[in-house]
Nucleic acid binder design. Structure first.
Lengths: 132, 132
DNA sequence: CACTTTTTTAGAATCATTATAAACTACGAA
DNA sequence: TTCGTAGTTTATAATGATTCTAAAAAAGTG
């Protein structure tokens, strides 16, 4: 199973619960955005059982740390994650409170001219807020 | 007093507490980043009295709504605000957990090629994460 | 000075997230 | 296979930022 590798890479043993989480996160070609609570709902529906929130949090954070998920920087009461871990950006529709992917190719090249001493750039993320 | 106008514009009467908040936020040429708790500490020190957190939250949110303050989109347990309301961007030093301004002129022009039907771009914000 | 409306305040309520500790499970060694 | 240890799950409690509340205080109005 391809998920086992992801889990092991993230320092996690492949357990039933974690494989269920993988199933929801990675069994589709389409990437998507989610909050922990939305993920928990999906799991409940898809696997037809409930799972402790702590398990969901732990697993998601391990994946995020390893780069299998990304946190999306946005001001919201809940943290948003993205299964699309390629270098890309986001629209945020303020009215609908929905995120929309914005591919790198849809943004001109971004050149950061200012350098900070002793620091390396880890990522450059663009958030485009939308209104009507 | 110049603060009275800002308050009135934000739909707030000029009270002693609100003027104290303005004093801390706007009496300097230098702009800065802050969380509600940092702001409360500054107020306590500068005005030598304590103020209800609720008052600080209310006032900051009113200013933010009116555009006298900006929220900085970042994943942190506390919300960060910026007294610099010009169009600009941020570095985020992951190790120090510190924000650094990144002026528009230090970023090449950003051209959003993708359009979303019926939506207007309200803002374009870049977050550059820094590591050692 | 009355009177009404807004504001401040301390504390309670809420809600996302993290911590805890007991029961359970994976997995390697014997 | 069985056992033992270390890792995992779970329900629940704890935490911490933010919001709500209701009573006291202050501001605005005539």
């Amino acid at each position: 199973m391809k998920y086992i590798e992801k889990l092991r890479n993230s320092g996690l043993r492949p357990t039933k619960q974690r494989l269920q989480i993988c199933e929801v996160l990675f069994n589709t070609d389409k990437t998507f955005h989610f909050t922990i609570n939305e993920l928990e709902q999906k799991i409940k529906k898809q696997a037809n059982n409930k799972m402790s929130l702590a398990t969901v949090y732990n697993t998601v954070h391990a994946f995020e740390k390893k780069g299998y998920l990304k946190q999306i920087p946005i001001n919201s009461s809940e943290t948003y994650f993205d299964t699309n871990v390629t270098d890309h950006h986001h629209f945020y529709d303020l009215k609908e409170e929905k995120l929309i992917d914005l591919e790198n190719s849809d943004v001109g090249p971004i050149n950061i001219l200012k350098k900070i001493n002793g620091k390396k750039i880890k990522s450059v993320e663009v958030l485009v807020k939308l209104e009507d």
